[in-house]
Amino acid sequence: MSETHDPVVILLTAGRSSRFLASGGPCHKLEMPLCGLPVLEHVIRAVQACGLPWHVVRSAEGDGMGDSIAAGVRATPNASGWLVLPGDLPLITADSLRKVAQALAWAAIVVPTWHRQKGHPVGFAAQCFNDLLQLTGEHGAASIVAAQDACGNVLRLALDDQGIVQDVDTLDDLKYVETLMSQR
């Protein structure tokens, strides 16, 4: 496999959806209907529209987001970088994905923000490969971001897209997202 010029979007779908189910959700949050499509389908459509290569992590050895990220990176070892995108952000835009990918030209890590809230996808340049492969557990890549931030290698990228922070963790979140979508 040769190195791709664009970073790969790692779409994380392996979570258990425990908070959603605990809030009264009848099934996994990614399968829930939202404006006529499952939550995950909205995210997939944005990823397809952005034009970047992508890889879905459906299951990972271990239980946490760190395990899923490592699995996605392991499956795409020749990528020029990775955009880590949880599958529960149905409002994310293709434009936001492209902007994070482009910003990787200037930093080892790109953290998008909306009104100063950290969002997703977090972008990682190829130099983060070995660190990403070592991830395990629930905390995702927060330790890598913190270490690179201490070295001045993290770019915070302000975006005008609530979709980078508005996830679906509960039934109330789903209702709120549906309201936002109906207003578009």
Results as ranks from 00 to 15, higher is better:
residue 52 L to Q: 03
residue 90 P to R: 13
residue 19 R to C: 11
residue 106 W to H: 14
residue 79 A to S: 15
residue 51 G to K: 02
residue 98 R to L: 08
residue 75 A to G: 11
residue 35 C to S: 12
residue 98 R to D: 03
residue 18 S to L: 09
residue 30 L to P: 06
residue 47 V to G: 08
residue 106 W to P: 01
residue 34 L to R: 05
residue 74 R to L: 13
residue 94 A to G: 15
residue 37 L to W: 15
residue 91 L to E: 09
residue 26 P to S: 10
residue 30 L to V: 10
residue 102 Q to T: 14
residue 30 L to W: 04
residue 58 R to W: 12
residue 38 P to K: 06
residue 56 V to N: 06
residue 23 S to F: 06
residue 77 P to T: 10
residue 10 I to Q: 05
residue 50 C to T: 01
residue 13 T to Y: 07
residue 42 H to R: 12
residue 54 W to H: 02
residue 37 L to R: 12
residue 54 W to A: 03
residue 100 V to S: 01
residue 97 L to I: 07
residue 103 A to Q: 04
residue 77 P to S: 09
residue 67 D to G: 01
residue 92 I to K: 02
residue 13 T to I: 14
residue 104 L to G: 04
residue 74 R to P: 00
residue 62 G to E: 04
residue 84 V to Y: 04
residue 21 L to Q: 08
residue 8 V to L: 00
residue 78 N to M: 14
residue 14 A to H: 09
residue 18 S to G: 14
residue 60 A to G: 08
residue 28 H to N: 15
residue 52 L to T: 02
residue 104 L to Q: 00
residue 81 G to P: 12
residue 56 V to P: 13
residue 70 A to C: 10
residue 16 R to L: 12
residue 14 A to M: 07
residue 82 W to Q: 04
residue 54 W to D: 02
residue 47 V to S: 13
residue 88 D to R: 08
residue 35 C to N: 10
residue 60 A to S: 14
residue 77 P to G: 10
residue 9 V to E: 05
residue 63 D to L: 13
residue 53 P to M: 14
residue 36 G to P: 05
residue 67 D to N: 06
residue 59 S to Y: 11
residue 74 R to D: 13
residue 105 A to G: 11
residue 97 L to E: 03
residue 69 I to F: 14
residue 17 S to C: 15
residue 64 G to C: 07
residue 23 S to C: 02
residue 63 D to M: 11
residue 95 D to V: 10
residue 13 T to G: 09
residue 66 G to D: 09
residue 87 G to Q: 06
residue 11 L to M: 11
residue 101 A to M: 02
residue 66 G to P: 09
residue 32 M to R: 07
residue 80 S to V: 05
residue 56 V to W: 11
residue 24 G to I: 03
residue 81 G to M: 02
residue 96 S to L: 03
residue 52 L to K: 03
